[in-house]
Amino acid sequence: MDVPPTAEPAVEARGLSKRYRGGQLAVDGLDLRVPRGSVFGFLGPNGSGKTTTIRMLLGLIEPTAGTAALLGRPMPRDARRVLPAVGALIEGPALYGFLTGRDNLARFDAADPTADPATRRARIDAALGRVGLGAAAGKRAKAYSLGMKQRLGLAAALLQPRELLVLDEPTNGLDPQGMREMRALVRELAGEGITVFLSSHLLDEVEQVCTHTAVMARGRLLTQGPVAQLAAGVRGRLAVTTPDAADAARVLREHGVTGLSVAGDQVTGDPPDAAGTGGAGAGGARPVDLADLNAALVGAGVRVRAFGVERGTLEDAFVALTGEGFDVAG
């Protein structure tokens, strides 16, 4: 979803840093820009500083250095004006166990100075319906499963019409079905024009729902930009499936394919520079067409079962950026 470049970013941070009392630098000079209308995936391993960043953005903790702005207004100075337009799920849900789901929402709604008590009931019902908790609304929150608590937390973020949703690890604790529903909901909200800032340590989650992403590791921002661009920045791997693997590798090497590896009937390698990567942006002159590579294989008597380029994934991009893998559970 593209937005006019003139629009103020939904989230902007400049040189944002946080040093905790122990001297540990949790966030180090973060420059972040979340375009309006985007679904922004804020990626990083656990402990990389994502939650600290979110807490600074929302005015819960004070930056050691740098500035933050939400919806074009400085935080935390304009918190009272900005935050009613921001829904947030921060580091998991927190509820009053002795109150029912509905009363929990009423409690959080009462804390919002812009929330109209006259419409509270209707808005609570709508939010409960939206996250699929209508039936459990009268149960005490302490009887909720983690997934239900997560849903109730999301309902609290949806009590008012929002311009920005900040969701910190929203699929934590959800079962696969719940995860799918959460992703569908995020897409639906984005379709309504709400900017969604979603932190996650799950690459596939970000790849599935996000338009933009930023990657954080050890307190520093490694990269940010549209998801497609980031994934495309990683060169795809040429993959050939053939019973004549050794011959195929030889022919491919002769045609400039590098980094070849053979595993059973699978031969993979980096295509020559100008060859199509299979991804976007591979226009222009192509001295070596992938089709020619295939023809060369066949011409050399190599029996080819499958031939193609595996697109670079966000995970490849991440590994390329950090030089290490990370938890991709889920």
């Binding site: 807490r55 929302l58 005015g59 819960l60 918190a79 009272r80 935050l83 009613p84 921001v86 947030a88 921060i90 580091e91 998991g92 849900p93 927190a94 509820l95 009053y96 409690r107 959080f108 709604d109 804390a111 919002d112 100075p113 937390g153 609290a156």
Partner: peptide
């Protein structure tokens, strides 16, 4: 301790008023 404080503050309740 329960974490509800952060949700009240981002509601935003306002620290003085809360």
């Amino acid at each position: 301790a329960a974490g509800t404080l952060r949700y009240l503050l981002v509601a935003p309740a306002g620290r003085s008023r809360l």
